[in-house]
Computed example of a mutant assay.
Amino acid sequence: MKKRLNPKNDYLFKRLFGEADSKPLLIGLLNAVLRRDERDAIADLVVLDGKLLTKRLVEDKEGVLDIRCETANREQINVEMQVGRYRHMEKRSLFYMGRLLADSIREGEDYGQLKKTICINMLDFSFLPLEGFHRSFHLYEDAERRFRLTDLIELHFIEFPKFRSAPYAVADPLHRWLRFLDERTTHEQLEELIAMDPTIRTAEERLSHLSEDDMTRMLYEAREKANRDRISFLKDAREQGLEEGRELGIAQGKELGIAQGKELGIAQGRELGIAQGRVAVARNLLKAGTDIAVVSQLAELPLEQVRLLAAHLEE
Rank of each mutant, 00 (worst) to 15 (best):
K2M: 06
K3V: 04
K8W: 06
D10Y: 09
L12Y: 04
F13R: 03
R15M: 14
F17C: 03
F17K: 01
F17I: 05
E19M: 04
S22F: 01
K23I: 13
I27L: 04
N31E: 05
E38M: 12
E38Y: 13
A41W: 00
V46G: 09
L48E: 13
K51I: 10
L53H: 15
L53G: 03
K55N: 12
R56N: 14
V58S: 10
E59V: 12
E62M: 14
V64M: 08
D66W: 04
N73A: 13
N73G: 07
R74E: 06
Q76C: 04
Q76Y: 14
I77T: 01
I77E: 07
N78E: 05
N78Y: 09
R85D: 01
H88D: 07
H88Y: 09
M89A: 05
E90Q: 04
K91S: 05
S93L: 11
M97C: 02
M97N: 01
L100Q: 09
I105F: 00
I105N: 00
R106I: 01
G112V: 01
L114I: 07
T117Y: 02
C119L: 11
I120E: 03
N121I: 02
N121R: 07
F125R: 01
F127R: 06
F127A: 00
L128M: 11
L130K: 12
E131N: 13
S136V: 10
S136Q: 12
F137V: 00
H138Q: 10
L139R: 08
L139H: 13
Y140R: 15
Y140I: 15
E141Y: 15
D142Q: 14
D142Y: 10
F147C: 04
R148Y: 04
R148C: 11
L149Y: 10
D151W: 02
H156P: 02
F160S: 12
F160Q: 15
Y168R: 10
V170L: 13
V170S: 14
V170F: 08
L174N: 08
L174I: 11
L174W: 11
H175I: 05
R176E: 08
L178A: 05
D182S: 03
E188T: 12
E191S: 11
E191M: 10
M196L: 14
R201V: 00
E204H: 15
E204F: 11
S208W: 09
D213I: 03
D213T: 05
M215R: 14
T216E: 15
T216P: 00
A222E: 09
R228A: 12
D229P: 02
L234N: 03
K235W: 01
D236A: 09
G245N: 07
R246A: 10
L248N: 05
A251D: 07
A251F: 06
K254T: 03
K254N: 03
I258A: 09
K262D: 11
G269S: 00
R270C: 07
L272N: 13
Q276N: 13
G277H: 12
A280I: 07
L285S: 02
K287W: 08
K287A: 13
A288T: 06
V294P: 01
L301T: 07
E304L: 15
V306H: 03
R307Y: 10
L309V: 09
